[in-house]
Amino acid sequence: MTAPAGIEPLFAISHNTLVVACGVAAVGCGAGVIGCFGVLRKRALVGDAAAHATLVGVALAFLATGRRDLPVLLVGGFLSGLAALGVLVLLRVCTRTRDDAATAIVLSVSFGLGITLVSGITARGIPGGAGLEQFLLGHTAALTTADAILLAAVSAAAVLLLVLSLKEATLIAFDSSFAAATGWPVAIMDYFLVALVAVMVVVGLPAAGAVLVTALVVIPPVAARQWTDRVPTMLLLSGVFGLASALFGVAVSAVVPRLATGPLVVLAAAFIFAVSFVGAPERGWWARHRRER
């Protein structure tokens, strides 16, 4: 599709940029939807440990294959994220370290290992290694069309899986002891939901980076929660909020390439949250303030 000659300077956006924007928007939307159950289950920061750990897998996958193929790197990141969650469970079972300290240990040590590997790769000048640093804070400018389609497809698959198990997920989110008493495999459902969060954290890496990607699965759901008490509405709203934040981040970092995408996405989501926090009709600060008067 070619634009008419006169308006070309205004819309100097390549086909690739558009596809990437759509792909990242899909990721934002998916992360918003999947994140809802993490927030409802009061496990908002579990994804953070997985997110920081993805860097190790990304670096190892690069070292193993010697190439910077996004799918390979993301599979590596997913595996190391899952491994970190496994270590977290083990520490909880086998040591007397408290849960919060265990989370902080897994998060910081795995991030340290990731940084060590990435810096080592960069310092040795391995071709293509310099680009690994974009996984720290997210940079969508380097994504190809194929990458974007992959990210969107994985996000869609994750959302589809969640929608298929919506009834069970809702049950354990609101009354896990009832679910356990009536024979639902609560532990397996929990692992399934956490694994979905890990998937979204990994596909969110190119958009938001290891440090901030957890915001994608926390802030939109928390904002959506302010507007509604119904799970389907919350999922929908959260998806829309995530999508809008991701689009904003991609658009601004496309115009100002120096800015990493991740922080911009987070700032947009935080803005949406602030508006929701103050202005939501029932639970919002303003509405309650007026009711009390």
Binding site: A44, L45, D48, V211, L212, T214, A215, V218, I219, V222, G262, P263, L264, V266, L267, A270, F273
Partner: peptide, 9 residues
């Protein structure tokens, strides 16, 4: 999660 990611961003 909301507060520190936003401030860091």
């Amino acid at each position: 999660g909301v507060a520190f990611t936003t401030l860091f961003a």
